[in-house]
Design a protein around this nucleic acid. Structure first.
Lengths: 146, 146
DNA sequence: AGTCAATAGTTAGCTAACTATCTATTTGTG
DNA sequence: CACAAATAGATAGTTAGCTAACTATTGACT
């Protein structure tokens, strides 16, 4: 057996993988009745927040790459939750806005997202949550550098 | 625009997704010279740690499902880093052990994993890391329940 | 003005995970 | 003991992300 102090079981990095997978699964499940997924719901959340947004910016906000967004946009467009208009300023861009139906769907989903977050963070003090967020932010910054 | 206090940007749940993706990418990159991936390296780590382990237990430790492990096992077996023997006790089980080459590969990769972890957690106090780990553990427990 | 590099988005094809379903074996119960 | 339920692992097919390579457009620099 290899001798080392290194212990994967107590590894924060491993925990993030586990967490993100589990959270995504549960959140997707919760959104299923709305006909949305974590990705599509988060997309309309950010489209609404920015009123008007292009795909590149949205992809960055969602933490995915451009090509991954294409299918999400197509789904939302098919469901008539968003409207896609060519930018008058830059013909390469497509500007995304919510349709009234899209806004309704977002609004319906919001309490669910809030409830989800509350359930997940139940029993944890705000102070500890803040520290955890700071730690995660720092780790992300560190990892991005190398 | 939907009116809400809810803010995805400051959302710990979203950060875990970003983190796990980035960490996996960087760690995979670091392991590339060894001909291993995050999954295969973590697998041999746990196989070594348990001396002898079946696929079900290993999958749980890796945080993946049985079918996902099958290909990883095949790769490790092909690279002659592990040995697969049918369990004498239960003919359904296959017991996994490291070959000498597997142990060498694990040992070679260990300093790299340690260094990786140090780099990512650089500039964060141990106290804060502990709190973050506790917070993550609690969130995982909470999420598992519903 | 003309060309060349950069940018927004798309398409095609890959990967690593997943679920559902299958076989072989084991366990537990009438 | 026999048979039903559970368990270990494999297979097939799906998914959500990725990279690489493409088109169309824009911007920058002679």
């Amino acid at each position: 057996m290899a001798t080392t102090q290194f212990d994967l079981d107590s590894c924060l990095l491993c925990m993030t993988a586990r967490s993100s997978k589990l959270f995504a699964k549960k959140f997707n499940l919760a959104l299923q009745p709305f006909g949305l997924t974590k990705s599509t719901w988060t997309a309309i959340y950010y489209i609404d927040k920015h009123e008007q947004i292009n795909q590149k910016t949205l992809a960055e906000l969602l933490g995915i790459k451009g090509p991954s967004l294409v299918k999400i946009i197509a789904q939302l467009q098919l469901a008539q939750l968003i409207k896609v208009t060519p930018s008058p300023v830059d013909k390469r861009e497509r500007l995304l806005t919510l349709t009234p139906a899209g806004l309704t769907r977002l609004t319906d989903g919001l309490p669910l997202a809030e409830k989800f977050q509350q359930q997940v963070t139940h029993g944890i003090t705000q102070a500890d949550l803040d520290i955890a967020a700071t730690v995660m932010t720092q780790m992300l910054e560190n990892a991005e550098q190398f």
